[in-house]
């Protein structure tokens, strides 16, 4: 399969740098949220062995403003889980703009598979 070259000279440096930034910002921002939530949680006397509340997207924003630790934690965890998909989305845009239709299609298919995971989780959950 000659269309995947191992020669780093053929890579698009700009795209890779941009994706590296997406990963770094996503990871550090998410971990900052988790750390804030953890401090609030511990300060409130919580124990990690208590059963955590389920994710509620409907109330996430309002609860964040109210300073509920669990919602900081959930937002951070969602950020962690979503960062790789954000990287793939960035790659999709980069490949499409660069005229690499095959790689753009692969990126799109990865997002479709992740979407299938969301549906599977919702249906079986």
């Amino acid at each position: 399969m000659s269309w995947i070259s191992l020669d780093p000279g053929e890579s698009r440096g700009g795209l890779e740098s941009a994706l590296a930034r997406v990963l770094a910002i996503g990871t550090y921002a998410s971990m900052a949220l988790v750390a804030i939530g953890l401090v609030l949680f511990v300060a409130g006397g919580g124990s990690p062995l208590d059963a955590g509340p389920p994710l509620s997207l409907a109330t996430l924003g309002a609860d964040l403003l109210a300073g509920r630790p669990a919602d900081f934690l959930w937002l951070g965890i969602l950020g962690v889980v979503g960062t790789p998909a954000l990287r793939v989305t960035g790659a999709l845009i980069g490949f499409w703009r660069g005229g690499e239709r095959r790689m753009a299609l692969i990126a799109l298919l990865i997002l479709v598979v992740v979407g299938v995971g969301v549906v599977a989780g919702l249906v079986t959950g």
Partner: peptide, 30 residues
């Protein structure tokens, strides 16, 4: 990243992730 993320989504939506346990462990590992 994307491999673990795909399965983590399934766990998350099935209520398999406990944020109270995940937070201190993730911060510690980081």
């Amino acid at each position: 990243g994307i491999t673990a993320s795909a399965s983590a989504i399934v766990y998350l939506l099935r209520g398999g992730i406990d944020v109270y346990a995940a937070a201190p462990t993730a911060v510690g590992v980081f």
